[in-house]
Nucleic acid binder design. Structure first.
Lengths: 215, 215
DNA sequence: GGTTGTGAAGATATTCACAGCG
DNA sequence: CGCTGTGAATATCTTCACAACC
């Protein structure tokens, strides 16, 4: 199984979303050119990304949508599914819970945690909210492998450590802080403020054409 | 004024946050090594990034925090400030409004828009919510230069076009769709679902050590 | 004819390593 | 000495271009 880079995985996920949509519309096959346009990359990029999945795709007819999706599933999904815990049931946390609710069966947010006792005990969008102290116990009990951090900056590092102690290997971090984690734990930072500042900077420079960002 | 890449700008913004924090703590100066550790990049990377700002920084003493911050301000901030409009006052939109409320004087979200008449007329976190139809008029009236899209996927493209028609040159897009925009408009996609899928993928591969992501 | 799969070339981005300075 | 600034080397990512194939 070929090794695939961070960026390539991001694009594969985008391809999958597009293909799912096409499958819905009963489109049987697609060309690299067409997919490239929808994903806003070059056709060569699409074909190169597909190399890592092993080949299929016949000249003149393009790629079979169903087969393509199956290959993506095999590569991207854990066979037994994966579950995530969200820490910080504030505005952003609730927005994310609402967004994910019931979308992906193989990748669900199954528990939320918050240090505010008033929030614990309730459920947000079908997701139970527990007191923060229970994180370790619940995470092990529910076999959670992923964490989403939506707490304020000051609390982020401690929460990350608690998640890691509970056996989590991957974190999506929305706090504007760089987490210090041991090797083997994968962190994806989503820094909303930084993104807006970047956009503000480039929006101001009319002449240059900087490359389009990655999510 | 040297041209600076997308990625470099992202790191400069991170450096600024760290330096602001240090300035608060009265730290007078910092070495590239120390800053690198806090920002989780290499010291060489820090020094390279600083080349685009013009030089300062004295051997053996490092960089003067105040001077460094001033240089970052000159590079990153628009002298007259910039303002953003947020479209889509749902869960995520409100979370972002709450997050930004009163944080950065030079970069404020000054108006929100929503197509739900029930939401229009009120204010969220001090930010007035207008009906979507008013976008063009208000954006020009308030001289808004940036847009934040937090509407569902189906509406995202139309909203982007309305923003661009209103003169906006930079967009932060939270909808899981690739926007088609004319050249000269800078788009930063923040795709929460994709991020979680990426993390899920890498969290599962114990052997490899993929690079840490960018926001 | 038209499209895929891929080696090779080309861009970009990052790191090395060391001269120069305080 | 220790640290900065930077040319050169390296690594990574993207595109080109073309043979193979339907």
């Amino acid at each position: 199984m070929a090794t695939v880079s961070d960026k390539t995985i991001g694009r594969l996920v985008v391809y999958r979303r597009i293909l799912n949509d096409l499958a819905h519309k009963q489109v049987p096959s697609i060309h690299s050119q067409d997919l490239a346009q929808r994903a806003q990359v070059t056709a060569a990029q699409v074909r190169r990304d597909l190399m890592g999945l092993g080949c299929f795709g016949t000249p003149t007819h393009g790629y079979d949508v169903a087969g393509f999706l199956e290959a993506l599933r095999q590569r991207l999904d854990a066979p037994q599914g994966q579950t995530a815990a969200l820490v910080g049931a504030g505005n952003l946390g609730r927005a994310i819970l609402a967004y994910f609710a019931g979308r992906r069966p193989k990748l669900a947010i199954v528990a939320a945690f918050d240090n505010d006792p008033a929030k614990a005990g309730r459920a947000v969008r079908g997701c139970p909210v527990y007191p923060l102290e229970d994180l370790g116990v619940r995470a092990k009990e529910l076999k959670i492998n992923l964490g989403i951090i939506t707490v304020p900056e000051e609390a982020a590092q401690a929460v990350a450590e608690a998640l890691i102690a509970a056996g989590i290997r991957g974190i999506v971090n929305f706090a504007p802080a760089r987490l210090r984690v041991p090797a083997g734990v994968y962190v994806e930072d989503i820094d909303i403020t930084t993104s807006l500042e970047k956009v503000a900077y480039f929006a101001r420079r009319p002449a240059t054409t900087p490359p389009r960002s990655k999510s």
